[in-house]
Amino acid sequence: MQLIVNIVVLTSIYALVSCGYVLIYRVSRVLNLAHGELMMVGAYLLLVTAGYVTNPMVAIPLAAILSLTMGALVYLLLMRRMTGESVLAAILTTIALGILLRGLIVIFFSAAHQYPSVPLGLHSSSIQILPGARISTLSLVLVLVTAAVYGSLFAALRLSRWGLRMRAAGQNPLLAAQRGINLHFIYALVWGIAMFTGSVAGMLISLDAGLDQTLVLIGLKAFPAALVGGLDSLLGALVGSLIVAAAEVLLIQYVNPLLADVVPFLILIAMLVLRPWGLFGTREALDRV
């Protein structure tokens, strides 16, 4: 039973991180390789808000709102200028942004390992949820938040007017613009939501395990999950995360823990060879890359 809980928690982490990759790619066709850094910045924003407000019910939403705003600003101040440029230029811009953010984080926050949970007075205890299976309270929150985020995104994309516009912008931006959809607003909104979801993942991980620059690498580990599922499919991100997480947990338990680091990328390579557009992605979308 503990293995199932472990798989669910790891799936939730990867799914919450990877949905940011998918959202941005699906709507704007940009592969955001700074997503790990943006996720880390979101977690550091929590450190900042926790320095001013010690009530977690205020500090966490405040940091999440700041993340949403910052994501939109990244688009408006930087990525917007890549409009009309080659896909490669946009990807390289995100790489440069990631390097810049890593440098700025060290300058402003140092390289020390920090604990946002300490000023917030949060302590992650554990609870038994199934016979022989325990979960930490923060991991449980992470699972619930992931479910809420995916539920909201599925509903919003399918049922709301803004969701329809986002899908339209992703499918045919020229036609969408001709129909009066403000593409820049849609893209800014999507960048904001992507950073919001990544930041929430970063915040919950850092509340549980502390915060330093290695959080970027966790963001990178979620990337194979997004690609395995299909870069333009939210359902794919969820399934890809489940596949990668299950492979990791089972290998750690039954084969060799060392394989946990390698297998996500082996699955990714296998998927790229057999079905480059991913399990739920569309062939047309990847042809553009």
């Binding site: 472990n6 928690v9 790891l10 982490i13 990178l220 580990k221 990791e248 750690i252 823990p257």
Partner: peptide, 20 residues
């Protein structure tokens, strides 16, 4: 030995293996 990769999102799977 339980060998843990440097970037690890969740240490519980490694801990489970040690505990069990």
């Amino acid at each position: 030995p339980t060998i843990v990769p440097p970037p690890t999102a969740d240490y519980t799977p490694f801990a489970t293996s040690i505990q069990q």
